[in-house]
Design a protein around this nucleic acid. Structure first.
Length: 426
RNA sequence: GGAGAGAUGGCUGAGUGGUCGAAGGCGCUCGACUGGAAAUCGAGUAGACGGGGAAAAUCCCCGUCUCGCGGGUUCGAAUCCCGCUCUCUCCGCCA
């Protein structure tokens, strides 16, 4: 959510910034309502002030045993007028809130301007895509042949876009989760969080999934207002909803494993094969709360923390800066990490690292005190995948496959796999 | 799921219709005392929104709102009524 005062004082600048995203917000209506609200507020507050003063007078008279009927009668009218105006105010504020919640974040100055993912800017590459001396197979073929991924049975027990991991596949997925968590906890200083996989509406609002993207979320219908989390970002960022943190608490680094659940509405026909795009997947998520002037450098660090996972696994990747047109709704700046995927013959997103600045903090009301006794200020929030686990499994299968269809397990994972070095068909 | 109790500031805890944004205590900040510290004494110490001032602010002045959330009664609600959420205790159920 943007700062109302910023919109009020600088609507043109915000309009320009949002146009770079390819969205236009209805700022005229917003500003009109905002002005109406303030005029009404001044009026009703004057009436309330009058009521407060006269109420004291009534109290005084009653105590003295003097009659106060005339004042009471007068205040009866004032009060009913106040009620009318308060109702109108509430209506306006509701509309303002709705408009405000639909306005995306402003891109940072450093974000390249562009319309689509074609305009994203590659920043760096690590590792070289492997040259195969045989025809490499896509991970779904490898997985089925090794009997570690089972799409048919997943479709039977649930539906499309679900998968069953079996045997060494299940263990590989679990090994990756533990490896990633351990790396971020032990080496990068994150604190582990194991959050609920179900959140309420306020949390979904706080991080920006709602109200605009409700059709993307899985909603629980027996519990009127619960959602399956699309990412651990939601429960973990909202951990500090409505809190005022101390300066000494910052920065906060959290890492959380969670299942993630996405309706994937509108992506029919995209990545239908394999485990790249599923309704349920595993992810290890990095979340940071920082002081405003530190968030940009913290984004760089967070991205590096995620990159290190790929480096240790030996998977080639590149990092791109998302352009303004490709930026997520709540993000001010995003780096995508893309892993080399032989079956796609291109780099595929495996992590998205974003600085939301104060956008989420304002929605979720997460503040801190810059100094003892100072006024609270909104923190900056950041998050990034560290990494998407299912896609990492897919990348390992494809990049480390051998001519006979077996897959070499990266060395760093072997301790998590009971020493297993190669996954072979039984 | 059933029965009961409760939700007040950073914490604790008083307050059953008016002078209560809220006693007392703890904590914290500043000052005094001290060679320094402790103890002691004094002062201060919630947030949001809006108006005015100022070049501007997280500054100054004024007003309004907030005692879990929402509604109601009343001239006036932390206090009375209704609904909801959460916490605790007991019972039931359950991994």
């Amino acid at each position: 959510m943007l700062d109302i005062k910023l919109i009020r004082s600088n609507p043109e600048e915000i309009k320009r910034a949002l146009e770079k995203r390819g969205t236009q917000a209805n700022l005229e209506e917003f500003l009109k309502l905002d002005e109406e609200r303030r005029n009404l507020l001044v009026e009703v507050e004057q009436l309330k002030s009058l009521r407060n003063r006269e109420s004291e007078e009534i109290a005084r008279r009653k105590k003295q045993g003097e009659p106060a009927d005339d004042l009471i009668e007068k205040m009866r009218e004032v009060s009913s007028k106040i009620k009318e105006m308060d109702d109108r105010l509430k209506e306006i504020e509701g509309k303002l809130e709705q408009l405000l919640l639909m306005i995306p974040n402003i891109p940072d100055e450093s974000v390249p301007v562009g319309e689509s993912d074609a305009d994203n800017v590659e920043l760096r590459r690590w590792g070289d895509p492997r040259k195969f001396d045989f025809e490499p197979k896509p991970h779904w073929e490898l997985g089925e042949a090794l009997d570690i991924l089972d799409f048919e049975r997943a479709a039977k027990i649930t539906g499309s876009r679900f998968v069953v991991y079996k045997g060494a596949g299940a263990r590989l997925e679990r090994a990756l989760i533990n490896f990633m968590l351990d790396l971020h906890i032990e080496k990068h200083g994150y604190k582990e969080i194991f959050p609920p996989f179900i959140v309420n509406r306020a949390s979904m609002m706080g991080t920006g999934q709602l109200p605009k993207f409700e059709e993307e979320a899985f909603k629980l219908y027996n519990n009127t207002d619960y959602f399956l989390i699309p990412t651990a970002e939601v429960p973990v960022t909202n951990l500090h909803m409505n809190e005022i943190l101390e300066k000494d608490d910052l920065p906060i680094y959290y890492v959380a494993y969670s299942g993630c659940f996405r309706a994937e509405a509108g992506s029919a026909g995209r990545d239908t094969r394999g485990i790249i795009r599923q309704h349920q997947f595993n992810k290890v998520e990095l979340v940071k709360f920082t002081e405003p002037d530190k968030s940009m450098e913290e984004l760089e660090k967070l991205t590096k923390d995620a990159e290190e996972v790929l480096q240790l696994l030996g998977l080639p990747y590149r990092v791109v800066a998302l352009c303004t047109g490709d930026l997520g709704f709540a993000s001010a700046k995003t780096y995508d990490i893309e892993v080399w995927m032989p079956s796609y013959n291109r780099y595929v997103e495996i992590s998205s690292c974003s600085n939301f600045k104060d956008y989420q903090a304002r929605r979720a009301n997460i503040r801190y005190r810059p100094e003892k006794g100072a006024k609270p200020q909104f923190v900056h929030t950041l998050n990034g995948s560290g990494l998407a686990v299912g896609r990492t499994t897919a990348a390992i299968l494809e990049n480390f496959q051998q001519a006979d269809g077996s897959v070499v397990i990266p060395e760093v994972l072997r301790p998590y796999m009971g020493g297993m070095e190669v996954i072979t068909a039984k």
